[in-house]
Design a protein around this nucleic acid. Structure first.
Lengths: 232, 232
DNA sequence: CGAAGTGTTGAAGCAAATCAATTTTCGTGG
DNA sequence: CCACGAAAATTGATTTGCTTCAACACTTCG
């Protein structure tokens, strides 16, 4: 499997594969790790979708990242000592837990250490683009931009089926990721549908013309650093 | 000097101090590195303020981070191979440039590698909080939140003078960091002044009652991970 | 089969954008 | 050191994207 777009040698991969033994199935909408948790295992998403989030004092929720298979959840906790946000699953997921001492062993390999750091920096690049998205785009572009990103990230790991991806998210979750209300998220989705930029059937999102959606959203895939991912 | 809140041994610090020889003075409002630049030197802010930013196709600008003395500018470029955003100075700054081979040498020390990774993760934590700020708070809280963060970060490195910090920013820059217009930024600052939450004289920002401003902004310093910084 | 969560729609209100004009400050060269 | 032009700050009037509130339909699942 791919690991956050890292370039690893076969022996590195072997070392990682051994960890897979510890993977467990986690139900949808379940916390993997919570804000305030002290140092513990580091988690990796093997299958399914997850998201980073934080609650505000007023009860609002902010979703700050989407995690796809191959992503590390919480290198933060291992390096910084505690979580400053929570992570939960969207769909039923297969989550691996790497104990701290195993992390220490992994990190002695400079190639792995560098790969993980690289993954961290890609996460950061995505976060910066989300910041642009929230701060400088209207709701319709925001939503289109998010859809472009998720489509490309999922396609890169082989989870797109032609123009379709499975996106098991509610309007509330989309809204919390875009900083808009559920009601407005709904109206905005309708708008994109009417424009023919997207189509939906249940959890399946269809992007009939990716170029068109990307243009509409001012989407430039540069920030995803997909070229770092081998073989796609 | 402190390095992004990292814990380093005296010999590590000695290794870093040698790099200071390459530091140069950069005028205000000058790019240190630009979006699209390929791998080159890694820069560190020794003195002055800088910020990360990106231009949008429509000409708008998004400011995605503030850099204070001790911060690394662009580990991105070294690890990811190219910049996905630009960095410019706000005030006259002393900027060190570390050549790629020097970086390689530094990174062979696991303590330094870890410190830099830690710095990257703190950057990311700040970025996440900015995302919350942009997505889920009204303009007055956004601005108050930004002021709280800058005050604490500057105080931590000894750049606060009692309740005062020097903030050489224009309304346009503040607005671009908060995702609001210059006009509205101005009105919001006036509001905070009227409420007695802040005061200003030229570039000096005064926060007479930090607790009050933090409460107003729903500010929780947790995300800054200031406890990682030794000696303050 | 009923309850809870999610999706859907309408109407009214508000925060922030937009547009426009004027004043103040600042940097630079004469 | 003052004069000048440009950048930044300031204020008002108007518009709009999004929120808020409210009600109802649909789906899903124990």
């Amino acid at each position: 499997m791919k690991l956050s777009g890292a370039e690893l040698s076969p022996s590195d991969l072997g070392m990682l594969r051994d960890l897979e033994l510890r993977a467990e199935t986690v139900p949808p909408r379940t916390d993997i790790i919570r804000h305030g948790d002290p140092t513990s295992n580091v988690h990796i998403v093997f299958e399914g979708l997850a998201f980073r989030y934080k609650y505000l004092p007023d009860g609002g929720r902010s979703i700050m990242a989407m995690l796809v298979p191959g992503d590390f959840c919480d290198l933060n906790i291992w390096i910084l000592g505690r979580m400053d946000h929570s992570i939960a699953t969207l769909s039923t997921s297969l989550i691996a837990a790497v104990p701290p001492d195993a992390m220490d062993r992994l990190l002695t390999r400079q190639s792995i250490a560098r790969a993980l750091w690289q993954a961290t920096l890609v996460d950061e690049a995505i976060l910066r683009e989300w910041l642009v998205n929230l701060g400088r785009r209207r709701a319709d572009r925001k939503l289109a931009h998010l859809f472009c990103e998720l489509y490309l990230r999922l396609r890169t790991i082989g989870h797109a089926h032609g123009p379709n991806i499975r996106l098991p998210v509610t309007l509330e979750e989309l809204g919390d990721a875009l900083g808009i209300t559920t009601v407005h998220t709904h109206r905005t989705i309708q708008l994109l549908r009417r424009e023919g930029l997207i189509a939906q059937q249940g959890q399946i999102l269809t992007i009939p013309d990716l170029e068109a959606l990307m243009t509409f959203a001012q989407f430039d895939p540069d920030y995803l650093h997909l070229d770092l991912t081998r073989g796609n």
